[in-house]
Design a protein around this nucleic acid. Sequence first.
DNA 1: CCAAGAATGTGGCAAGTCCCCCATATGTTG
DNA 2: CAACATATGGGGGACTTGCCACATTCTTGG
Lengths: 279, 279
Amino acid sequence: MVNEPVIAADADPIAIRKSRRSDGDRLSKSARHQHIISQLTAAPTLRASELAAALAVSTETIRRDLMELQEQKLINRTYGGASRPFALEPSLVDRKRLLIVEREAIAAAIAELVQPNEVLMLGAGATTFHVARRLAATARDITVIVNDFAIAGALAANASIRILCCPGRYHATEGYVFGTQTIASINSYEANRAIVGATGVGARGINDADEEAGAVYGAMVKRAAEAIIVADHSKFEQRALTVFAQWAEIDRFVTDRQPEGAMATALREAGTEVIVARQ
Amino acid sequence: MVNEPVIAADADPIAIRKSRRSDGDRLSKSARHQHIISQLTAAPTLRASELAAALAVSTETIRRDLMELQEQKLINRTYGGASRPFALEPSLVDRKRLLIVEREAIAAAIAELVQPNEVLMLGAGATTFHVARRLAATARDITVIVNDFAIAGALAANASIRILCCPGRYHATEGYVFGTQTIASINSYEANRAIVGATGVGARGINDADEEAGAVYGAMVKRAAEAIIVADHSKFEQRALTVFAQWAEIDRFVTDRQPEGAMATALREAGTEVIVARQ
DNA sequence: CCAAGAATGTGGCAAGTCCCCCATATGTTG
DNA sequence: CAACATATGGGGGACTTGCCACATTCTTGG
């Protein structure tokens, strides 16, 4: 368990140069980087000193490697090593790994709005999942009504959050419940805010690729005292199957980039407050 | 961008009393632990020194906290702090690994009983989780009413199973929903069979350590046309908080070992059919 | 009420890490 | 070949963390 003193494995430069041999080989910088990344998929954290020993380079070199990888957001720096960033986590589904920075910023902006003792409705989805994580970290004594199991799990990290799950049919691949029971359940609650995502947002309203999911989102939007749409800029002007809400119904739109053109006009005419989260 | 001190509320009444005051005073141990866990859902890593400052305790205390949390596998230790473990989600994993052979045998026996187009109620728990996995492998065109998220996920592997989730409060560590809404929901369905587990089974009936969970199980047992209890022999004569059903209400008892003594008598007198699954 | 035990803080020291500057090795370019 | 860029290692001081022993405070159970 104790770390051996970190000493240059090969004090002899000649030995270093004959690098064709077995494990004493020097690896290139990119090879080291790759090694670090792959190690992180196996272990949640690494120590710089251990990496230096394993790769037969100095800790200074490892530190520089880690700095570079951190700038590329491929790792997360810790004191004395590195840990897995959000994006490398195996538990997150593909879609949840995209646009992490943008979504985290949006989530942070939402978290600032939420006050203790509020009742929220939180729709299913990848962006709202980030909102849930953020709320778990910052919110206090709130009640959240959800229809997405992953979101319930994320919120569960905070014991002061009361999580109410909607009933309904369970969507096997998406991990949420939907259907008439879900909507009936939503309509039986009073909430301060509904926070829902979307497949696309545009001048003509807010749409979703899944009709059932859209119906749930629409119910949340209509039912809560305040309706908030969260969507990063990749959703701008995307068109999908179902338009589940009009901007006139939406009080706030939290995104990561200022909308332009027809969508900006529609937002202004509808009186929707646009909040652009800074990263 | 650094985390401001976020007061994580908690279940501990003492901590609640203390956390009401200004930021100069201390939180209870469990409150600190809760805070650490929830912070970890938002940030991939934490520094012990920062935690100490945020929670207004010494770094030694934080270190001791981190050690405890690590032993519970709730965090991952790093040099100078902590990082997120692989899964912060409610992990019933541990309990699900116990007595696998016995539970698989019980699950197989259940799966043989179930016919296509049946409607089942499946209670939360480790044994019923095995039943769900087995049903996902063998059942066809059934509808399953569940209150446990892990079970919903297991059943989702089979596209011909319709999964209906009950509403209710989400239990953060156990991963199921409970409460009056859950029970009301159960009472709105008609089901061919209820299949529920237990903390203990004995001559005096079927009990559970969690009152809320027991209430849900009891509702399932009373509501379904046929009630089945599943429990391996380690549950025999275990006593727990709530007796949620009497043997007279139970049609079948599926286990892995022939009951004896008072419990066998009680089963005989109640007319409960005992099915001993062979491994 | 007190005593035992748990939880927490303090101080010191060893060890680990950070970070800056500089030396060396290697490769590139004119 | 000289000049330069890149990659790496080394050294040392400042800082951070780990760890231990001990004192103090809080809690709990008689």
